[in-house]
Design a protein around this nucleic acid. Sequence first.
DNA 1: GCTTGACCTGGAGCGCGCTCCAGATCCCAC
DNA 2: GTGGGATCTGGAGCGCGCTCCAGGTCAAGC
Lengths: 133, 133
Amino acid sequence: MGVMTETYSPAQTVEMSGFSLDTLRYYERIGLIEPVRRAAGGHRRYSDDDLGWLDMLRCLRGTGMPIAQMHTFAELVRDGDDTIADRLALLEEHDANVETEMARLIELQRKVREKIAYYRGALDEQPVECVRD
Amino acid sequence: MGVMTETYSPAQTVEMSGFSLDTLRYYERIGLIEPVRRAAGGHRRYSDDDLGWLDMLRCLRGTGMPIAQMHTFAELVRDGDDTIADRLALLEEHDANVETEMARLIELQRKVREKIAYYRGALDEQPVECVRD
DNA sequence: GCTTGACCTGGAGCGCGCTCCAGATCCCAC
DNA sequence: GTGGGATCTGGAGCGCGCTCCAGGTCAAGC
C-alpha cells in the first residue's frame, strides 16, 4: 500500500493557503493555477503540489508582483525544465524591485517619523491647558 | 520691501511634488488640499505652504495610507491646533502599520530568496549542455 | 428520503486611485 | 493681434484584483 498523496477540499485550501475561495477560483480561471483535480462530483481536490504552488504565488503576490508577471512565471513553469534560467532571472529582477520598494518605504517612513517627532514637540510646548496657579 | 512668498505654477508643482497634474487637481477636488490660490485669470498658484502639505501627503500616500485616512488627517489639520494630539495618534498608528507591512514584506522577501537559491541550485546541477569531451 | 451546508459555474459588480477627455480660456512671445 | 502652449472645468473611463451573486449540484448526518 503506497503512501497516498494528500488532497484538500477548497475550504481546507483556503485555510492553508491564505487565499479566499473566490481568489483560488479566479487564479485557476485566469491560468495562474493549472486546472485542479476534481473528485467524482466535480468538487476540487487540491494536492500538496497545488499547495506548494499556492505558496509560491503568495510570496510573489504578497511582495507586489503584478498578476501579469505571475502569469509569465506560471508559463515558464509549464514550459518545463529548460526555462529555469528564465525563471531565475524573473525572480531576481523581482527581488531587486522588492528591494527598491523597501528602500523607498524606509525613506518615507523616516520622514513620517520626523513629522511625528515634530508633533510631539508641538504637543509639549502647548499643553492642553495650564493648570491654574 | 518684504520678502515675497514664492508661488508656483501647476507645472512647477508637478515637478516639485512628484504628483501628476491630474492628481493635484483630484486631491483638491476631494478636499485633501485646501482650495489653491488663483492668479487673476483663474490659474492656480501653489504656495510654499501648499508644497509643504503636498510633501506630507506624499509621505502618507507613499507609505500606503488610504485616501480616506488622509482625508481624516486633513480635517484634523483644518480644525486647528487643539487636534495635534489626534494627529499625532493617527500618525503613530500609521507608523505602526507601516512597520507591520515592512515586516511582512521582509519575511516574504526572505522566502522569495529561498526560491531563488533553489533555482540557482537547480541550474548548477543541470547545466545547459555538457561540454563535449 | 431530507435537510443542510459545502461547492459548482458564468458572469456581473465593485472599490480604489487615479487618468483621460472635450471644449473653453488664459497667457506669453512674436 | 495671433499662434501655440499651459491651464481651466466637469464628468466619464479605466486598470487592477478581486468579490459577489444567482441558480443549481453534491455530500454527509439524521
